[in-house]
């Protein structure tokens, strides 16, 4: 049996009296895309923040390649190859593509006081890396704010891959994108998987999750409803579980009942009117 590259066992996280995560377990292997699904407030973002080193779990263990870890900052996670691309925080719009790409991990030449940011080499690498994924940036000096949403996400993913990510956590990478741009991003996710990278994909959109995902973990109110392989879960079932199927059914029933009541009320009113006319 292979060891998972990342594993959490019975992780819990509390914010004051709020239980954000309650005994969640999950594992992840190289070359797979794990889709993390769930409604708002289900604990998806808390879980990925624990995985990426932003939060520390209050209970449970976190293992990377079989060894227990305690991260104090995202830097610690990055050092072990766990990179996170956030939905809105991916890039700094006013900074150039190159500066964004290398922010926090700048290439340097020289030593001591003469240690400096190797801008030329950085620009060449950015051009090459983005070229590999089919993004032709006209000018590496170009502010990221002038790129499209899909290009921006792709640059962020390319950055993580370039810096040796073994685990790539993508937080809603397609939520703000049109169909075509979302396709670009998903294609790049597939490319990353083919290179042996383990991907955790958080998304609301079952139509993005199902085609790319190998396994699916569904969270609800801080607990996991289980992890399923694609074979175990049809698209319809997945959609039902994601959107809190039972609740939707209940709601539907309620609405139907309400509709019936309203219809009855209307009928009664009509009846009375009729009676009064007779009187």
């Amino acid at each position: 049996m292979k060891t998972p590259i990342v594993e959490v066992r019975n992780i819990s996280k509390y914010f004051g009296s709020v239980i954000a995560l309650n005994g969640v377990s999950m594992d992840l292997y190289p070359s797979e895309v794990m889709c993390l699904l769930g409604d708002n407030g289900a604990g998806k973002s808390t879980l990925i923040k624990i995985l990426s080193g932003v939060h520390r779990p209050d209970e449970g263990v976190y293992l990377v390649e079989g060894k227990e870890v305690h991260f104090n900052s995202p830097r610690d996670a990055l050092d072990l190859g766990i990179a996170t691309v956030y939905q809105d925080l991916a890039m700094i719009p006013l900074m150039s593509v190159t500066r964004n790409f290398f922010l926090g991990s700048e290439l340097t030449v020289g030593r001591g006081l003469l240690r400096r940011f190797d801008v030329k080499r950085a620009q060449r690498i950015v051009r090459e890396e983005l070229g590999k994924m089919g993004i032709d940036i006209r000018d590496p000096h170009q502010p990221v704010g002038t790129l499209s949403g899909g290009e921006r996400q792709s640059v962020a993913i390319a950055r993580a891959v370039y810096f040796g990510a073994k685990v790539l956590i993508l937080d809603e990478p397609t939520s703000a994108l049109g169909v075509k741009q979302a396709g670009t991003v998903l294609r790049y996710v597939a490319q990353a998987r083919a290179r042996g990278i383990a991907v955790i994909l958080i998304t609301h959109n079952p139509h993005h999750a199902y085609p790319i995902g190998d396994r699916f973990t569904i969270l609800k109110r801080g607990r996991t409803l289980g992890t399923y392989t694609k074979a175990e879960l049809s698209r319809e079932e997945m959609i039902r579980m994601m959107s809190g199927g039972e609740e939707l059914e209940k709601l539907e029933e309620e609405l139907r009942a309400f509709g019936d009541q309203a219809a009855r009320g209307l009928a009664n009113a009509f009846h009375e009117e009729e009676l009064s006319e007779w009187a």
């Binding site: 990426s52 995202p74 900074m95 926090g104 991990s105 700048e106 940011f117």
Partner: peptide
């Protein structure tokens, strides 16, 4: 020189542009 050619220079742009994003990439 610091702003355009050093790591801390790049960090200065980063923390001013978006401190959360900068912190998340390890600045």
């Amino acid at each position: 020189y610091i702003l355009l050619r050093t790591r801390p220079g790049n960090w200065i742009f980063g923390i001013g542009g978006d401190p959360h994003a900068a912190r998340n990439v390890g600045v």
